[in-house]
């Protein structure tokens, strides 16, 4: 197995291979199932929730979990299960857009830096380091405190700190692709740097981005919950897991269900996404493939 090794490594995996490997990866499967359930709850919440979360019926307040209210009700008489469904929608939306911002700006910056090299690379990546040096969540608190609390500002604040993450990872990955023979071939064939990046670099780094995206996604959900917990994130009547936790705080002693369920929702979702991310890396990452 001397010469053919390289051939084997670079031989494109078919989707069937990937799928087969995925089905045998336990953490990927568990993560996928959890994520799908949360996603399904979020999507269903657009059309239906067991109870309305905007009509408050104070007379139903602080009911313990029952068949009628699976997770009980909160201090305004709202059904906690319904709020968690809508909260899932909110968390996913915020995290998705935040990751989107990171990808949209970070990936082009990273790829450009890798393609250009030299002075531009240096400037971009050092700027990146500066942004990295800020504690992300604290800075997000600062941004929302200045520009006012609300879902949009929370998304922007979380998104901004996703940019350097994606810039760095795509630059690193792209740099490892650039010296490869097929890129040289493309250069010889007269393709420009932009075209090479789009046609050859991106397809080769997309798996890495997907894995990182999943992880950033779960961090985004945590960040949104954190911001909402301190009152700077999503505002009522929209439901948010972080704010539910905050509201539950003073009622812990007599209505623990108010804190337990949103807390569980955050833990389970973040766990699911991290498992999914781990699994995806096992399945997709070429570097890991080599080691196996």
């Amino acid at each position: 197995m001397s010469a053919p090794l390289i051939e084997q490594l670079d031989a494109p995996e078919t989707w069937r291979d990937v799928a087969k490997k995925a089905l045998h990866n336990r953490s990927f499967l568990t993560g996928l199932i959890i994520t799908t359930i949360i996603l399904a709850l979020a999507i269903i919440s657009f059309f239906w929730t067991p109870w309305s979360i905007t009509d408050l019926d104070i007379s139903l307040k602080l009911k313990k979990p029952s068949l009628e209210h699976w997770f009980g009700t909160d201090h305004f008489g709202r059904d906690i299960f319904s709020m968690i469904m809508v909260g899932a929608r909110n968390s996913i939306a915020v995290a998705l857009v935040a990751v989107g911002i990171g990808v949209l700006f970070g990936v082009p910056i990273g790829c450009w830096a890798a393609a250009k090299g030299g002075y531009a690379d240096e400037v971009l990546m050092r700027t990146n380091d500066v942004i990295f040096a800020f504690p992300a969540l604290l800075s997000a608190v600062m941004i929302t405190a200045i520009f006012g609390p609300g879902a949009i500002n929370a998304i922007l604040a979380i998104g901004i700190f996703n940019i350097p993450v994606f810039a760095r990872i795509s630059r690193g990955a792209a740099l490892s692709i650039w010296p490869r023979e097929f890129i040289m071939a493309a250069e010889v064939a007269g393709k420009g740097k932009i075209r090479i990046t789009v046609e050859h670099i991106l397809p080769n780094i997309i798996n890495l981005l997907l894995v990182q995206g999943t992880i950033q996604f779960s961090l985004g959900i945590l960040a949104e919950a954190g911001l909402s917990y301190v009152g700077l994130g999503t505002q009522p009547p929209m439901s948010s897991w972080g704010r539910m936790l905050n509201e539950a705080q003073t009622m812990m002693s007599f209505a623990p269900h108010m804190a337990i369920f949103p807390g569980l929702a955050i833990v389970v979702t973040v766990l699911g996404l991290n498992l999914l991310g781990d699994g995806l890396r096992d399945v997709l990452d070429p570097r890991l493939r080599r080691e196996r």
Partner: peptide, 10 residues
Amino acid sequence: MKILTTLAKT
């Protein structure tokens, strides 16, 4: 890691 703080607090 606000969640951790919450847990710690509770």
